[in-house]
């Protein structure tokens, strides 16, 4: 009886993941059929009229990936540094307190990060953003984007906020694996007269690399799916498609869905967003499965 119950619950969870994929697909199909443009290659998004649906994922996907990638580029080195600091440098008595402080970052809800990004960090970053745009504007990343730099609703701001948000995720996993570096290897390096940094380079980093990459993938997955912070921060674009600039804006898949939730009054319109959600689901699924695959295949656990 009890065994059956436990097994059933396991089955329920497995069924749940399958159900998510299947039901999203079911609800998206009618809208995809009604779509007048190509879903995968178009960037247009007009879904108000069920008889004239024109929606494509391209720009949303691009902004989603660009924001998450930018956040990852910022967060990865810092998270690595923090993980090393917590496991190799901080005095043992303080390491736990320090680790707790980093974990606190994960406890702050994303809506609060979003508000802070919108009202505090965004404005504070404007001078930097303008300086980059003025002086390094020839470089595509810093060229003029499709939203106002002064407004702050750019990938630049959003990426920085996202980086802060995924920092504790990457750090937690990296720290855990760094802590497991075999003692005898560390001692072996020390006995050769290695400095603390050299010990890290010869033992901790090679041992923890897979965990670090996997933690970063999980952070990436989190960044791709983050909704409300980006919903608050990113401002709507003035028409031009996003290109390579960090000063582009508009919306990610998730923030677009949240933004237009009020439009969900007929099934066909809602289906367009569900189709977008399905893309996000697949994307995060792949990233998370990859992260898991890296941990299992590399650490042999």
């Amino acid at each position: 009886m009890f065994r059956g119950l436990a097994l059933g619950s396991g089955g329920f969870v497995v069924a749940l993941i399958a159900a998510i994929g299947i039901f999203l697909l079911l609800q998206a199909l009618p809208s995809l059929q009604a779509n007048q443009v190509s879903f995968l290659t178009s960037g247009e998004w007009t879904t108000g009229d069920p008889n004239d649906m024109r929606f494509g994922i391209l720009y949303l996907l691009w902004v989603t990936v660009a924001t998450a990638a930018f956040a990852l580029v910022l967060a990865m080195p810092v998270a690595l540094g923090i993980a090393l600091f917590l496991t190799q440098y901080a005095p043992r008595a303080l390491a736990r307190v320090f680790a707790y402080i980093i974990d606190l970052l994960a406890a702050v809800p994303s809506i609060i990060f979003g508000l802070w990004g919108l009202q505090v960090l965004g404005p504070a970053l404007v001078p930097t953003a303008e300086w980059l745009n003025t002086n390094l504007g020839w470089f595509p990343l810093f060229s003029d984007g499709n939203v106002s730099i002064r407004g702050g609703g750019t990938i630049f701001t959003a990426g920085i906020v996202l980086a802060v948000m995924i920092l504790p995720i990457i750090t937690a996993i990296t720290r855990e694996i760094f802590e497991r570096t075999p003692k005898d290897q560390i001692e072996g390096a020390l006995a050769l007269g290695a400095t603390r940094w050299e010990v890290i380079r010869t033992t901790v980093l090679p041992f923890g690399r897979a965990g670090y990459v996997s933690g970063s993938m999980l952070g990436l997955g989190r960044a791709l799916g983050e909704t409300v912070a980006l919903y608050l921060i990113l401002s709507g674009a003035s028409g031009r498609a996003p290109e390579l600039s960090l000063f582009d804006g508009d919306a990610t898949i998730a923030s677009k869905i949240a933004n237009d939730a009020a439009e969900f009054n007929n099934e066909i319109s809602a289906g367009a967003y569900i189709a977008a959600g399905l893309v996000l689901f697949v994307l995060t699924f792949v990233v998370n499965a990859l992260a898991r695959w890296i941990t299992t295949s590399r650490t042999g656990k």
Binding site: G225, G277, T284, N288
Partner: peptide
Amino acid sequence: LTGVPSIV
């Protein structure tokens, strides 16, 4: 499931 975004 841990990685499923809340919006999904």
